[in-house]
Design a protein around this nucleic acid. Sequence first.
DNA 1: GAGTAACCGAGACGGTACGTCACGTCTTCCG
DNA 2: CGGAAGACGTGACGTACCGTCTCGGTTACTC
Lengths: 199, 199, 199, 199
Amino acid sequence: MESSTAHRGNRHGRSEEARQAVLEAADDLLAERGFAGVTIEGIAARAGVAKQTIYRWWPSKVDVLLEAFTEDMAEHLTPQDHGDLGTDLRTHLANVAEFLTDSDPGAVFRALTGQAQHDPQLATRLRDDHLSHQRARDRLPLDRAIERGELPADLDVDAALDHLVGPVYYRVLVTGSPVPRTFTDDLVAAFLHRHHRPN
Amino acid sequence: MESSTAHRGNRHGRSEEARQAVLEAADDLLAERGFAGVTIEGIAARAGVAKQTIYRWWPSKVDVLLEAFTEDMAEHLTPQDHGDLGTDLRTHLANVAEFLTDSDPGAVFRALTGQAQHDPQLATRLRDDHLSHQRARDRLPLDRAIERGELPADLDVDAALDHLVGPVYYRVLVTGSPVPRTFTDDLVAAFLHRHHRPN
Amino acid sequence: MESSTAHRGNRHGRSEEARQAVLEAADDLLAERGFAGVTIEGIAARAGVAKQTIYRWWPSKVDVLLEAFTEDMAEHLTPQDHGDLGTDLRTHLANVAEFLTDSDPGAVFRALTGQAQHDPQLATRLRDDHLSHQRARDRLPLDRAIERGELPADLDVDAALDHLVGPVYYRVLVTGSPVPRTFTDDLVAAFLHRHHRPN
Amino acid sequence: MESSTAHRGNRHGRSEEARQAVLEAADDLLAERGFAGVTIEGIAARAGVAKQTIYRWWPSKVDVLLEAFTEDMAEHLTPQDHGDLGTDLRTHLANVAEFLTDSDPGAVFRALTGQAQHDPQLATRLRDDHLSHQRARDRLPLDRAIERGELPADLDVDAALDHLVGPVYYRVLVTGSPVPRTFTDDLVAAFLHRHHRPN
DNA sequence: GAGTAACCGAGACGGTACGTCACGTCTTCCG
DNA sequence: CGGAAGACGTGACGTACCGTCTCGGTTACTC
């Protein structure tokens, strides 16, 4: 109930309130002022939290962002099953593009990926904790199609994934071009042209 | 020769010596300590140069790195002309992969691209001053093949480029997987399978 | 007996064990690391006691030290009665000097007196709770001598005390010079020269 | 002129303006909020100076106070020469008492002496840099009297000084009693009674 | 060949944020 | 209900760099 006390400096466990406030403040700051504008002091001030509380639970500001990111993700980007490879891929790739370019967690992802270029440890963590899960989700349509016989059983799924999503990430991270539906549909078309065996 | 003066004070024009020392110091610091270890004070100290001299000629540390990068690049990554599309593409893509993963300027590129995720101005500059030139070099084999009739005249060259190099950048910047020759060759194969009309 | 429980949680009254542990820890920390090294957190950690337990019983760290000081003092510095003013004073002054310069409670006294220069409340408490008692002990030889007729009945005893012990404290607190027996004996000689009427 | 620039971040030498502002701010804070209220951050804020500027020139806050103290002192407490020992001593001792109890630099002195009880290094510095000079000034009347033959040539001047000023410091630092003119005059009377040989 | 203007090194300056320490308050659970 | 445990907001610590600002010294062009 709200009748319960405000913060619970207690023996067993930390303040969920403080945790949420920190994550939100970090997200907000990233959106408003960019990565350089996210500082521990700034988060603390905006969250109404002590700096020490942040340092107690997160080693650095990227860890805060990572956790904020984790919360936000997951529900996004789980491809649906339409029972048809082409539809599955076209829909999913469009979702990926939209996530990366337009969504708030997408902005966090771009910032973290940027930072990972300077920080190999972050890169590793990002890959192990997040990208691997995303890759697992990304491959679902392909796995299902193989089961259905729409794709050859010996398809190199990892390479196929790189061919499909690589150009999307490239546009987002490198060229900065938009990623319209025609672009993602064309990627799917190229893929199907090479590998698809319609039932 | 060292017999010439150290150039301290000059009415017309800047000290080339100082410029070189700054660029080298910045490169060295990036290699040794990473992007965060590159500071104006650190560059100045290592180059034996006054901070003011750096601020006089470069607006920020990324500008120093950008200039250092420009010097190193260019000679790399200009695709050769073998008279054959497949050979051209396979060779060039392998060169791109090697440049991005193994070379020193490739490391600078990754750092700058990472920083560009936090800094839209840098992103713009990076694209206008460097990536556009690289794109122009990248498309040479395709343009030549179109001229030779190996590719349809109405090919969307930009999209084709994204399909070809996108997965390479994606591996380098996002997944961190290696980019072996088999991977780049397979990219070319997929492309040729879709578009190539052998003469 | 130690056979009794360690008293963790007690419905009736406070833990004498905790009290002793706190006082000892404070004393030890003062001896080992000086006044600034005495912190509530440090005392708690060393005494194996919760911070809150300290705050429950003592308002501040100086109160802990004051209590530790009180325990140690008292038995010291009660002048003996030799039936002779000169002997009484010489012995007592030498004891005072030794207490201030060499003893452990003397060190606590110096620290507290130092702190009292920054903290008027502490100064008042120190005077009311401790110095007044010490002054009362200090004057015993003089009072006895007045009774015996060795000193004039209208002697300003307070002023006399200041003349006798003032220089000792001055050396201890200000100049840092040693306070040898010759120094204290000379103080007594000066006093006797002025006021003494041998029987 | 005021037309001259505000601060002179120059090669040779520091900003006298900043130095003065720091010393004044420290003095003010001590007077207003006591020793614990003097913080580097507080000094910096009040002086309109960067923290780093303080740390550049003073190792700690006591060093700031010590320097502020040095500036203020010196002119005080140099005993005048009336050609008569009694008058010289009575005047000087009254000045000392007034300085210690009432003046601003006297407050700084008390704070520093208090802190010196916790900090042996400060104690040493305080003695070497300040008290020794004050002792030298204090003894002038005695030296002159010896020259004039008013005091025996073999007088232990150091001990005599301790007898004279010790009780004054004792009252100020320990008992907190006032130090009226009658008290200091009486000290002089006791001293003269023992040693004086009127011409 | 004497000025003098542009650039050099050095580094002090007002700032912002860092990551750490101790403060004094609080809430829980145990005995 | 006292005590161990420890999370919390607060505030100062001392450090690293930031970007700006004189300085004094060194050329190399200009008169």
